[in-house]
Amino acid sequence: MHVETLVLSVDALGQLSASDSQGNRFDDIRPVRLFPLSKPSEWISLVDRSGKEILCVDDPANLSAENQKVLASELEKREFVPVLKRVVWVSGNSEPCEWKVETDRGTTSFIIKDENDVRKLGENGVIIVDSFGIRYHVPDRDALDSYSRRIIEWYV
C-alpha cells in the first residue's frame, strides 16, 4: 500500500477502512501513534485487528485533506488524554499517593504508584500516568498555578 493512493473511509458502524488504487482493501483497521508523547502528530501506523502494520504514515500532512480529517477524528476517538489544569489536592509526597485534579474533561482523582509515573515531556510539558495507565497531559507547567507547579516540579 502507498501513502500517495491511500483512501481512508469510515463505514456506518464506525469501522475504519483503507484502500488504494491497486484494489487493496483493509477493513477494521486502526491508527496507532508510534511516538504518542514526543511526536504525536507524526509517524502514525495503520494496523489491522491483529496488530499487523499495513501502512506507516510518517507525516499525515502528505495525505489528502479528506484523509487527514478522517485520520485525525479516528485518532481522537481512540484516545483519552485529559489535559491537567490544576492540582487541587495531593495525599502526600510519597508514592502511592492520591491526586485530586481539574482537567479539561472535568474534575477527577487518581493514584500515582511510582515517582517515575510523572515524567517530563519536552522542555516544559509533563505526562502523568495513573495506576490504571490513564495519561494526563500538562502542556506547559509554567502556565499552572504555583501550588500545582510545586507538586509537579517535585517529581520532574
Binding site: 508510534l34 504518542p36 499487523k52
Partner: peptide
Amino acid sequence: SPDEIISAARAAHAHGFISRLPDGYDSI
C-alpha cells in the same frame, strides 16, 4: 532520526510489539 529508529526496529522484528505498547516508541 525516527525513520532510522523505526527501520532498525523493523529489521529487528521489534516494530510489531513496540507499536502495540500504549506509548509506542515513547514507552519507558
